[in-house]
Every structure is written in structure tokens, then in C-alpha cells.
């Protein structure tokens, strides 16, 4: 990163960054226009109509409906434009567009960021990404609320205990960028910082290959270690339902109704199995709350997600 002593605009390194900057400049012009207008009017009137003697007489005007309507409506219509554009750009930060979107899993805890790549590498307070490839972040906190903030990408999202949050971004420029925690999280909040390295695709492939076991493999190991595999038999004849092809499918519940088996549901079912029991099964599964870490959960979920592809069922 170039070390500018008096930077004026932050680095711009994602597809959404120029859009946000453009909107920012538009609103900045709007803001400067109105601020200068008000300053100018106030100073001009104050000089022009300055009281010169005791006999000065003002001109009494009580109001004007036309003016009131004008200065209510015109700025409002202008900012409605900002609303429309701003909302559209905001939605893009949550929309998966590319087919080859890669996933990154982030766990925030006091006071570090733990990053897992599905292919295996795990990092702390550092994150390596390939350039020009869309990335979906799935994030959760182990303790308090944090916020994953990369100024060069113009993006942040709160990382909350007990539920997954996510956003999508495509880096566009190779380089090293700041990673901050933006939600106050305790003593070392300002130490919960790190670096994002955006690399050429080929460099990234090399870097990933240097990692160890994939998340799926780790998840599979945990699946055995916690005894999940004794009940969740692949043929569906175990005490728990088969998990093959379960990810993102609709599951009928014992109590009626159904639920989509997304990451949040899988996580809830591991930690709080009695909450939403699948039809045809008993609420016999023990809770794993406090026994498995958030990182481990992500690995087990990655394993469950992988089950549909490999078995082809």
C-alpha cells in the first residue's frame, strides 16, 4: 500500500467501491451546494441588512406558501434519487451473481478474526483472496457483536453471536488492505485489526495448495468424533434422518410446517436439536451447545453440505 501522508480518498478495490464512491460524490455535491447556499445566504443577509442605526426599519414579511412548498419538495425529490440508487447498490452487496462464487468463513472472537477457506487454509487476522472472483462471506461471532469492515471494499457487516450473517464482494485490485472490527467489542477492540491480501488468481491457487486438510475433511472427522455418524446413517435407517442431500432442501417438521435446511437451520439443529424436529423422528438427539466451537460447527456444516455432491443421491 502506498503510504500517503495526507490521503483524501481510500483505496478502491472492489466492484462495489466505485459505485459507492460515485454515490458519495453525488451526495457530496448536493451537501456542499446546500451548505454553501445556507452559509452564503446567512452571511450575505447579515452583512447587507446589518443594523446601522436605531431608526432602521425592517420589511415585514410573514411567509410564503410557494416558497415553503418549493424548499420542501425540491430537496426531497433530490434525495429520493439518492434513496433509489443507494438501495440498489446496497442490495448488490448481498446478491450472489457469479457461478464460481467462492466461500469464506469468518469467526469473530475477542479480539481476533479467524478465517477458514473451504480448501483448507486457516488464517488469523489475515485474509487472502483471489482478484476478480466473487466471494461470499459467512460470519458468526463466538462472544460479543463484532463487525467485519474492509474500507477498500467499502463494505462492512456486523458479526453476531448465535446467527450467521453474510455479504458478497468481488475484489478488483491486487494489494494489501486494512481489515477492521467496526463494532465496539471490548478492551482490545482497536487491536482486532488485520490485513486483506488480494492476489492474482494463480498466486492464490498456489497459496491455497499450501494449506492442510479441507474444511469438508475436518468436518467429516468431527462428524465421527462427536458420534453423529452412529445415528445419522446414510441409508436413512438410523435414529436420526440421513443427511445426504439435506442441505437447502425443505424439511417437514414433527409439529407441522416445514423449514429450509440452510446453514442456520443446520446450526440450530446441532445446538438445540429439540427445537425443530423432522417428521418421523424422535427428539432424542442431545444438545452440542458448549461442546463444539463455532469453527467446528462451520466445518461440520461444510461436510453436510458436501454430502449431496459426492453421494449423488
Amino acid at each position: 500500500m502506498q503510504h500517503n501522508t495526507m490521503p483524501f480518498f481510500p483505496d478502491s478495490a472492489s466492484t462495489i467501491a466505485p459505485e459507492i464512491d460515485g454515490l458519495m460524490i453525488a451526495e457530496l455535491l448536493f451537501s456542499v451546494f446546500f451548505s454553501v447556499l445556507i452559509f452564503a445566504i446567512v452571511v450575505y443577509f447579515a452583512l447587507k441588512y446589518k443594523r446601522k442605526s436605531e431608526d432602521d426599519r425592517p420589511v415585514h414579511i410573514h411567509g410564503s406558501l410557494v416558497l415553503e412548498i418549493a424548499w420542501s419538495l425540491i430537496p426531497f425529490i433530490m434525495i429520493l434519487g439518492f434513496f433509489v440508487v443507494g438501495t440498489r447498490v446496497f442490495f448488490r452487496a448481498y446478491t450472489v451473481e457469479a457461478a464460481n462464487t467462492m466461500e469464506i468463513f469468518v469467526t469473530g472472537k475477542q479480539w481476533m478474526w479467524k478465517i477458514q477457506h473451504p480448501e483448507g487454509p486457516r488464517e488469523i487476522n489475515e485474509m487472502h483472496l483471489p482478484v476478480n472472483r466473487q466471494v461470499k462471506f459467512t460470519m458468526i461471532a463466538e462472544d460479543v457483536i463484532h463487525s467485519y469492515f474492509i474500507p477498500a471494499f467499502r463494505l462492512k457487516k456486523d458479526v453476531i453471536p448465535g446467527r450467521y450473517t453474510s455479504f458478497v464482494v468481488t475484489p478488483t485490485k491486487v494489494g494489501k488492505y486494512h481489515l477492521f472490527c467496526a463494532e465496539y467489542c471490548g478492551t482490545q477492540h482497536s487491536g482486532m485489526v488485520g490485513s486483506v491480501y488480494v492476489m492474482e488468481e494463480s498466486d492464490y491457487e498456489k497459496w491455497v495448495a499450501g494449506g492442510d486438510e479441507s474444511m469438508t475433511a475436518r468436518g467429516e472427522a468431527l462428524f465421527g468424533q462427536y458420534g453423529c455418524s452412529t445415528c445419522h446413517l446414510p441409508n436413512g435407517k438410523g435414529r436420526g434422518p440421513s443427511l445426504i442431500g439435506v442441505y437447502n432442501s425443505m424439511q417437514k417438521l414433527q409439529t407441522g410446517g416445514s423449514v429450509k435446511a440452510d446453514e442456520s437451520y443446520l446450526r440450530e439443529s446441532i445446538l438445540n436439536p429439540r427445537a425443530k424436529v423432522v417428521e418421523g423422528f424422535q427428539a432424542v438427539m442431545p444438545t452440542f451447545q458448549g461442546q463444539i466451537s463455532e469453527e467446528g460447527l462451520l466445518q461440520v456444516i461444510a461436510y453436510i453440505k458436501s454430502l449431496e455432491k459426492e453421494e449423488g443421491q
Partner: peptide, 9 residues
């Protein structure tokens, strides 16, 4: 301590 169904909620 909760013995019955319903989960942690």
C-alpha cells in the same frame, strides 16, 4: 431445569 419438550427457548 426443564424436563419436557420445547428446547432452550
Amino acid at each position: 431445569i426443564w424436563e419436557g419438550d420445547g428446547g432452550r427457548e
